[in-house]
Design a binder for these strands. Structure first.
Lengths: 175, 175
DNA sequence: ATTAAGCTGAATGCCATACTCCGGTTGACC
DNA sequence: GGTCAACCGGAGTATGGCATTCAGCTTAAT
């Protein structure tokens, strides 16, 4: 593969991720192309269709997140700290949203698997934090994860958002 | 106006509000019609176009909310209580969202005014609660209102949602 | 210099959705 | 219970946005 092609492929993926994070899951191919300073045709040279591009970006990102998550998981830090760090890390990721939404048309098995794994990791972490006594115990793991999703998967979300801050404070177990 | 027309007009408004709350701001005229058990033609008999219907529903709802808010405001209850009650009251309202979003196409002056008034009322309330010492003071009124908006204006939001609960807990001033 | 891989973006086709309209229905008044 | 204007239904039309294609031009690599 020619060097410029390689570069463009990565540029497309990065740009797509960025736009998805900032403007939500409805970005058009045209928008992505323009933001990357390329023509739409180039996107289609690298990805057969829109879904492909989305899947590819999702898979890459989810894999990174999963790796980071597993690393954190086996650290010695208190579970609460771990959770906060992972949430920060995930912020701005709209892809979990794309996939976790009851979106009928989504079926890519790789992405689905990754989402499931990430979900399980998160839930385990939440439940550990509850056992540790740092996270309020009146919600199920799934509920907490669902709620963190809202905080994290918003167009334009940032880790130091008021929303994220307040939500995390609200999740902290009362003294 | 014929009795059935009157009935249908109200049915349309109610159904639209309900669907907007449950499925978000992208509901189609067809969906609303079907949910109301009517034909699309009937919607257009009562409202010249989609925007009209949305504006009408928004204006009615916002007026009700504003009245309820003003009543609460002049009650003797602690500001925190008042705030919680109003939030509960607003939950499921997607219209504030429609209007408060940077949606370029929205210009109806009535609705804009109502939104502004409701916003001001909310902010005043939040700031009073902060002075009262029941609401954390490290956020501006506007930030708090924005964040409550997220909680309240989601498709399918409910007042006893984990999200709303946790968010309110996170907003409470620390002892 | 050669050339195949790469790039562009106007043109195409598709689909969802707002909106229209005419034939059939019905409430209201006599 | 008859009349009729208001009302309703829903197939059909118009439109706009978006994914996707492709013919002609560029450029990296040798």
């Amino acid at each position: 593969m020619r060097a410029d092609a390689q570069r463009n492929r990565e540029l497309i993926a990065t740009t797509a991720l960025d736009l998805l994070a900032r403007r939500g899951p409805a970005v058009s191919m045209e928008e992505i192309a323009r933001a990357a300073g390329l023509g739409v045709g180039t996107l289609y040279r690298h990805f057969p269709d829109r879904q492909s591009l989305l899947d590819s970006v999702a898979a890459t990102t989810l894999r990174t997140l999963l790796a980071a998550g597993r690393a954190e998981q086996s650290s010695a830090a208190p579970r609460w700290q771990v959770l906060v760090r992972i949430v920060a890390r995930c912020t701005g990721l709209p892809l979990a949203l794309i996939s976790s939404l009851p979106d009928a048309t989504r079926v890519d098995p790789t992405v689905a698997d990754l989402v499931a794994e990430l979900d399980a990791l998160f839930q385990g972490l939440v439940e550990d934090a509850q056992r540790e006594g740092s996270l309020r115990a009146d919600l199920t793991g799934a509920q907490v994860v669902g709620l963190l999703n809202v905080a994290v998967c918003r167009p334009g979300a940032r880790a130091d958002d008021p929303l994220t801050t307040v939500l995390l404070d609200g999740l902290r177990a009362r003294p």
